[in-house]
Design a protein around this nucleic acid. Structure first.
Lengths: 216, 216, 216, 216
DNA sequence: CGTTAATCGAGACGGTACGTCCTGTCTTCGG
DNA sequence: CCGAAGACAGGACGTACCGTCTCGATTAACG
């Protein structure tokens, strides 16, 4: 969130600031330039204010007047893309989970996906950015949680599952595979489907008979 | 890989290079200094060759003579720590898996763990570093695979499990939780144990007959 | 000459440059540091921009923004010391000449004298520095010329003398003796007086009538 | 003088050193390379041992084994060119002096002349180089002295002249004009002739009457 | 005639300075 | 007051030499 906007909001909603008001166009141009640069591959550590200012057609001071440092600019830029709406789930629990996970497995193909990987290294160091990150991913995690709970209610999923752990086991492999250190052994695999099957003890659902029964 | 080693390999394995040979002590000092700086918190992007040279007591040219750039120095430095041996697993499959996963959950407490997080952001961009990373983690993954296969053989684990997917579902959540974006909802949880339980015991509970019972 | 001054002179004398103007304090600090280092014995070839920047409390870029290289910085630094005023001459032509030459014979004892010798080697290569040098020495040469012309007018000096050649014959031996290659055979000699006597009195002695006698 | 030769001379003239003797070809190649580089414009301060070694086809250690530093190499290199013989003087004293001075006025056209200017800056700092310089110039000065004394004996030159001062007054202007800081006011002048005329009280010789007499 | 030892070219060593670039801050101008 | 422009101090970059050192290979005199 823009520092001035915060200040204005907490101090005086109605009174006009003296002098020339800040240009909303500049705000937008700066945020857009930041996202553009991140999406076009610039790693966060190499994202220079100078480059952002140049691409936004704005003076460096104009950026520093609004954000205290590079990190908070990035936090705001990231927070601004929260709009990306979520797909609506389907009918079968298994199908719904796979549907929800699939875009995570194709992260490198949308804007959100191209920006995220650049930020991951900063998450450890920057709690605010981590917060923004969580705010962005939370709706997706919540959707997963809802489907899992629905599955438990309908008996499609066993009831002793820790929902949070389950969600993490579904999402984390995709993040690691797509964003950090792709494992060549998993390259051709339809990972979202495999993950769901593995978690939900596929055999019971796919063959009608669990592996133990088959082995017995 | 060291530039000279490359040269030797492509040219002539046996003939000695003319002139004074390169100092092995310098090699070691440079690698050690690099790892020290990484372990002491310096982020990869802020690791300067100048600082490495100073800490190693070495001229900058001595570094540039061996490595073309910062990245390949880091690749070699990382590759050099592969020595960290693995703990030997125990008896019960469930216990063995938890034992193997536990150190991953405590990565921030050993040298390897303090260095790794600094590198993750580079993995996407630098295939060589990614290769080094995989070489380092592969023995740990292989140990997990062996235990899982043993469990399948003894009937403690259902046989339809894709071993690679299972390994990833165990490891990835720990990496994400400890290194990237800790999820506050999982903060107090004994994640290694929860992961193993979620993966292994689920089917047993839903199918009415656990693998242990079947094996008994 | 400062690069900016050049730019202004060739482009537009009146229009202000955009952006923050250059700091006059930095200019002065850089020139002062340069002269300090030269005067304290640093030979021109060992004068490093890095040292100048450090002593001036200035970034290297601030120096390179103003001067393209070390040489032109030195040219400007030298040009800036032209202020050293000249002593006023006395009454007798012979005495006046000796008075004017004496400081040249004691160059190693004043600031100007300690800096000059460091520059001589550069004069051949650097026409701009040679120009600065000439601008600094010209007032002194002009003073000598005036005295010689006065002597010719009053009859104290023979009238066929080429003034420029005479000035050079007085000054060059002192430069060579004090700055370049002292001749041991002239070590104890009061060179300024000897030079004037040799130049002026010679003809008088051979012709039987000294200039003073002629003027008396 | 070569460091080893010194050692041999002071210790034991006859006993041969054990081991492989030093290569005379290397000595010559190094000296020649040094003079080449100096003559081809490289200023003394920019003459790198590395360049000398490269041009001589010799290792750097081969140079440092013989000379303690760059300066003493240059001293020896300069000393090695003393061979340049002097022209023989003519009949008239005035003509002889002009003949002797003329080559000094054309220094930039022979090898000696192209090397000398590079050295002048070092003379102040390096007594050994100054000594070499004096040894090289002394024969020329001595020739001038002899002619001047001959002129005094024959009555062509007045007898009260300090010979050393006179020599300096003839030579120093040429050095300054040709090597250090050429005075534009003297550019078209036949300086050697003018100097001799000015010193020898030209009028007496050219017009038969001294200036004082003419003015009286 | 083989041993011996100082030489040779080559090149790595720890340093220092180079001139460039970019950082985040600051200071001025014109609108 | 705002925007743009650009100077500010600082510091890392990768290169070039410095003068020293260390290597394997020569090479000449001594034994």
């Amino acid at each position: 969130m823009n520092v001035d906007v915060i200040a204005d909001a907490t101090a005086d909603q109605d009174r006009k600031a003296p002098g020339r008001p800040r240009s909303a166009r500049a705000d937008e141009a700066i945020i857009a330039a930041t996202l553009d640069l991140l999406a076009s591959g610039t790693p966060v550590e190499a994202l220079s204010i100078e480059a952002v200012a140049a691409r936004a057609g704005v003076g460096k001071a104009t950026i520093y007047r609004r954000w205290a440092n590079k990190e908070s600019l990035i936090v705001d830029a990231v927070a601004s893309i929260k709009g990306d709406v979520l797909p609506v789930p389907g009918i079968s629990v298994r199908e719904d989970l796979v549907t929800l996970l699939r875009p995570v497995g194709r992260m490198s193909q949308n804007k959100f996906g191209r920006i995220m990987p650049c930020l991951l290294n900063e998450l450890r160091r920057n709690p605010q950015l981590a917060e923004s990150y969580r705010e962005l991913t939370e709706p997706r995690r919540e959707a997963l949680r809802r489907v899992i709970r629905r599955g438990i209610a309908t008996g499609e999923i066993r009831s002793d599952l820790d929902v949070e752990v389950a969600v993490t086991m579904l999402v984390a492999p995709l993040i690691v595979q797509n964003v950090l250190a792709p494992n060549p052994a998993l390259e051709g695999v339809d990972l979202p489907a495999e993950l769901v099957d593995t978690l939900l003890s596929g055999p019971a659902a796919t063959a009608g008979a669990g592996p133990v029964a088959a082995a017995g």
